[in-house]
Design a binder for these strands. Structure first.
Length: 670
RNA sequence: GCUGCUGUAGCUCAGUGGUAGAGCGCACCCUUGGUAAGGGUGAGGCCGGGAGUUCAAUCCUCCCCAGCAGCACCA
């Protein structure tokens, strides 16, 4: 008599199943609806094929399309396989290598046969068609355990040199699996997969582009073609994604930055921003806003040197770890030969080196260390609009989002062990207020200890728990605030809280952070005198809310699609005339608006009102005040608000009150 | 930093082995017109930088630089 397997379900119930049965059998036993909906299973927490037999008693959770994260991962992985099969079906002799799921789809690295060119965009439509054919054929995806030798022989026989090479490196005794697609194609794969290709929606994917890639990412190896696709559960999701891509392209801050004349970049200073008057206006508004917030939060602002002796950076540990990303300059007077132009200064061998700061922390510790600090003085919160430089890899630079020179809304809080939780809690509240003022929703995540780290496990336990406690006390350790703990994502010296913003089209951006640091105070020997008269180490909290002005402005431009709220808009209103008879009145209106603190410009040009409306609308000016003969006679303005079809005629004084109200920063409203 | 692609007027982009074009923008003229493009005329280019091939290079080749898309990286 065979033993029955005990399968426990998420609701706590236990089902007895015969040996050799599968999650699909359990689903069928529960009901036909679930049998149809179940696409995979979590067995003892591990995502598995729905048709893979249980190996013993197990905890089972059936996965359906509602478990979107798992379902997407499975579907994308399957799409990758179907892609590889399609390419080989269309182009026999193509070698296949790897094909994982990505954030929005999948890719597969392949090598085209010698007889033809590498694959290009032009090949994609045919490959897509072939993929649809394979999906419609509803080929079962069947798992089989093979020996390593079996795999090697199979790949060598088929001339799959990459697969064969890979198989040879697989561990001997581990369970190696292949997945059949029908009976005529298979790929080596850990799985899991859906039950058949027909579980995929043939209308839910699109091949996007091709890119070059090297076998195993190493340029010494053979060159492959990587075919990228985006893959989803259904056509609706795919379309939403494509619309989101289009929308994102329209909002691209690099494009809007040029169109709105906010800033530019040029190759002589690549990675550093030239802010134009309008762009810098936004910056100044943000800076003023942040100063009010930090002043209100008990921070005191300082300014520290751009250049410090390299020895200082050695002591802080940054030079050892990040020197390759720092800019260093010799501390010497350059000797330029008399010919002048074109002469290069030479650097003496014994020159002292200075480094441009890549961060503000060490300098803030040096400020803290001046004089003698009592526990009564703590916490000390030092803020700085700190301009930093990091020599980022060139390929990483991206508009305002990733730059070599940036300014942080940085601050460091020096406090006692006992003050950490309260300081972090207060920061949570401060950050919440800021993000809400810009209309962002956000999630707070705790990045836990990484594998490579400094300090004992006991220290990490404590540090992680402090952050949890602080978030809990702020009332934010829950779903509403997207609370989540991320394994292994912390910095090497401390766990950190991260704020992830969600913008108007659903993309997320990590901006704010706070982290407790007990390493740097130690390295730089920061102390305070405690109640007991002895020296103690303060804890140093590193924190930022915007992250960097550059990046935050980039995010704001995309979030608002360039239609900045009035308080941030570089030009808040334009007074546009219909006829030149209204010029004097327009001048009067502009004078009054300026006196009321409104950033206003006039447009008296000899152009039709249609033209002016169009131009200022495209320039995303929040309010257009149109004046013609009628308004000039009546002392009114016709206000056209960006995004609204209707105009409102009101007295100039009423308009001023309205514009002032709208131009008031959110933290100064009542 | 790696791979692929790109670099022509302020912007968006055509184009050709015999040194160049459009639309928008800009300037000037006409037009004073009531809510998303009125008409005309004109100016504006070391065709990213360097080297090579050629009688001749913006175009072909090589090197460099920058940008874009991915990847890797992001204290």
């Amino acid at each position: 008599m065979t033993e029955l397997l005990k399968i426990s379900l998420p609701d706590g119930s236990v089902r007895e199943m015969e040996e050799g049965s599968t999650p699909a059998d359990v689903a069928a036993a529960i009901g036909p609806g679930l049998a149809k909906a179940a696409i995979a299973a979590r067995v003892d927490g591990e995502l598995r094929d729905i048709n893979r037999p249980f190996e013993g008693d197990a905890e089972l959770a059936l996965v359906t399309a509602r478990d979107e994260e798992d379902a997407l991962e499975l579907a994308r992985h399957d799409f990758a396989h179907v892609l590889a099969e399609a390419v080989q079906s269309l182009f026999p002799g193509t070698q296949i290598t790897f094909g994982p799921a990505t954030d929005d789809g999948f890719y597969y690295d392949v090598k085209a046969p010698e007889t033809r060119e590498p694959f290009s965009m032009d090949d994609l439509p045919a490959i897509e068609e072939e993929m649809r054919r394979i999906i419609k054929a509803d080929k079962p995806l069947k798992r089989e355990v093979w020996s390593r030798q079996q795999l090697i022989e199979k790949w060598e026989a088929e001339g799959e040199v990459f697969k064969a090479e890979w198989a040879k490196e697989l561990p001997e005794h581990e369970e190696l699996t292949v997945y059949w697609s029908g009976e005529d194609w298979l790929d080596m794969c850990r799985g899991p997969h859906l039950a058949s290709t027909g579980k995929l929606d043939p209308q839910a994917f699109k091949l996007m582009r091709v890119a070059g890639a090297y076998w195993r990412g190493d340029q010494k190896n053979a060159q492959l073609t990587r075919i990228y696709g985006t893959g989803w559960l259904n056509k609706k999701q795919l379309n939403q994604h494509l619309v989101r891509l289009e929308e994102a392209a329209k909002r691209d801050h690099r494009k809007l930055g040029r169109e709105m004349d906010l800033f530019h970049l040029q190759e002589e200073a690549h990675g550093s921003v030239f802010w134009h008057p309008k762009g810098y206006r936004i910056w100044r508004e943000l800076e003023a806003y942040m100063r009010r917030k930090m002043d209100g939060g008990g921070y005191r602002e300082i300014k520290t040197p751009q250049l410090m002796d390299v020895r200082q950076w050695e002591q802080s540990g940054h030079w050892g770890k990040y020197a390759e990303n720092m800019f260093a300059v010799p501390d010497m007077v350059p000797e330029v030969d008399d010919s002048g132009a074109g002469a290069h200064p030479s650097v003496a061998k014994d020159a002292d080196w200075m480094a441009i700061k890549p961060m503000n922390c060490p300098a803030h510790v040096l400020v803290f260390k001046q004089g003698i600090t009592s526990y009564r003085d703590l916490p000390i919160r030092l803020g700085e609009m700190g301009c930093c430089h990091r020599n980022e890899p060139h390929g990483a630079l991206h508009g305002l989002m990733r730059v070599r020179q940036f300014t942080q809304d940085d601050a460091h809080i020096f406090c006692t062990e006992g003050q950490v939780v309260e300081e972090v809690r207060a920061f949570c509240k401060l950050a919440e207020g800021v993000y809400r003022d810009f209309g962002f929703t956000f999630a707070i995540k705790l990045a836990l200890r990484p594998e490579k780290r400094l300090g004992s496990d006991a220290d990490w336990d404590k540090a992680e728990q402090e952050l949890r406690d602080a978030v809990a006390e702020a009332g934010m350790m829950n779903e509403e605030f997207g609370w989540e703990e991320l394994e292994g994502e912390g910095a090497f010296y401390a766990p950190k809280l991260e704020w992830h913003l969600t913008d108007a089209i659903g993309r997320t951006w990590q901006v704010g952070t706070i982290q407790g640091d007990r390493v740097l105070p130690d390295r730089l020997d920061a102390t305070y005198v405690g109640e007991d008269g002895e020296k103690h180490r303060p804890v140093m909290l590193h924190r930022a809310i915007f992250g960097s002005y550059e990046r935050f402005i980039g995010i704001l431009i995309e979030h608002y699609a360039g239609r900045l709220p009035s308080w941030l808009a570089p030009v808040q209103a334009v007074v546009a005339t219909i006829v030149s008879d209204a010029d004097d009145y327009a001048g009067e209106a502009v004078g009054k608006l300026k006196a009321a603190g409104i950033r206003v410009e006039s447009d008296l040009r000899n152009e039709k009102i249609n033209y002016k409306v169009r131009e200022h609308s495209l320039a995303k000016v929040p309010h257009l005040l149109v004046v013609g003969k009628r308004e000039a006679e009546e002392g009114t303005v016709a206000v056209r608000t960006l995004g609204e079809k209707e105009q409102k005629v009101m007295s100039l004084d009423e308009a001023i009150v309205m514009l002032r109200e709208e131009a008031t920063p959110p933290d100064l409203r009542n």
